[in-house]
Design a binder for these strands. Structure first.
Lengths: 233, 233
DNA sequence: AACAGATTGATAAGTTTTTAGCATTTGACT
DNA sequence: AGTCAAATGCTAAAAACTTATCAATCTGTT
């Protein structure tokens, strides 16, 4: 049912676990409950207010918003070491997204009380959180900016390249056009048109559930020309 | 040339100065240089990498992106106590926005070294920064979500209500249609069409440089119907 | 009271995106 | 090798948005 997922946020966001040293990692793990979810199972829902931080231990967490009509708009996929829900500790805001497991997934869950203790005893953790959040904000701002200024064609390439970047695969990406469209916030038809054009221009090659880059450098150059601003993904 | 500006972010983002106690405020002010800018003067430009935190002392800072063709896309307006550029301290990312003064404006500028010292001596400051950043991220996510799911008409109402909320004025907002359009990332023509419709339906009243809400409750109810999700602005 | 600049109102043509279909191809599983 | 569900390919009409202009209205200032 669910094929392997690329981990993207939609761009390289630093995993919290990569920003803290081993000691803090162990302290977090010690304070956490590990919860297992099966494929498609709901981890959190938009609007919830129960506070708690979650960190992916294994598997993937799909982040997005479920519409009442069954549609799902994806905001990104989080992989091992990546965290979500931090803001429920520090603010009393409701959750912004629905989070579901993609494949069998284990999540470290840390409740409010324990996490606050961790923050008090490890000031470095607060700094790491700040750092990770600032980077996330930065990405969001760039995303917002490109949504407004770049045509869909360029946005699609940008997303493809960033997925390739985060997955490490150099010349192809395993993703369905439906998911790409969802991530970009457009319909499959619109996306289909632009990937067709890109394919005609030889910039990408379309496959079943995947997209190849025959010449990644050329693709990157093409994108930079479109952006008219420094490339940052 | 420049009329009074509503302070909006585009929604209530907590000013950093409201999140810290007086002692820290004084310490920040002591570490800062005050720089004066005249109306329209550039404070920072997108792409810059020189680190430093800025806090509005008086006046307003207009945040957005200047296109090569002279167009300007506004992301928000920051008022006294609000901060920007924090991420230049904690990451080595380039600035995402152009910031210009709107009216005569004074800015506290704190350089990297001094700000780091402040953070070390006042751990509460890091927590406040985290809190403010998390709230900002939350707003951005909500914004992104509504951009994808709501029609322009609803997005326009949402923005209007959030501006009214942050300015405290209950039944009208002082803003030009041009600025509204910029904030929403659409042209004045498109915005003109939807505000005209809203006006025909009696939900708002159009004025010269301002928009009135004859019945704010009705407007809020209307928006909630459109959203089909809990209202949060 | 008159003027100038700023702001809104309005229109038409052109482009992009969506909606709603249906046909075709692919890959996994018998 | 055949079958079925998943995924892509394609089309046409409708809706939304942009670009480019020009006219009308408002406001502060002389």
């Amino acid at each position: 049912m669910n094929q392997e997922h690329a981990s993207f946020t939609p761009s390289k966001s630093p995993a919290l676990f990569n920003l803290v040293d081993d000691g803090i990692q162990e302290a977090i793990i010690a304070a956490a409950n590990v919860v297992r979810y099966t494929d498609g199972q709901l981890i959190h829902t938009r609007g919830q207010i129960k506070p708690g931080v979650s960190i992916v231990k294994s598997g993937y967490a799909k982040v997005g918003v479920n519409g009442l009509d069954g549609t799902f708009i994806m905001a990104g996929v989080l992989g091992p070491g990546e965290s979500f829900g931090e803001f429920t500790i520090f603010t009393d805001l409701p959750r912004t997204h629905d989070v579901t497991a993609s494949g069998t997934t284990e999540i470290y869950q840390i409740d409010e009380q324990r996490f606050n203790k961790l923050c008090d005893s490890h000031p470095e953790l607060v700094k790491a959180l700040l750092c990770s959040t600032l980077m996330r904000t930065h990405l969001l701002l760039e995303l917002l900016d490109s949504m407004r200024r770049l045509p869909l064609k360029a946005r699609a390439v940008k997303l493809l390249l960033s997925i390739a970047y985060t997955t490490g695969s150099q010349d192809f990406v395993r993703i369905r056009q439906t998911d790409l469209a969802e991530s970009l916030g457009v319909t499959r038809v619109s996306l289909g048109k632009v990937v067709k054009k890109l394919s005609n221009e030889g910039l990408i090659e379309l496959g079943y559930g995947k997209i190849r880059f025959p010449d990644r450098n050329r693709l990157e150059r093409w994108l930079e020309q479109q952006s008219a601003t420094p490339l940052s993904y």
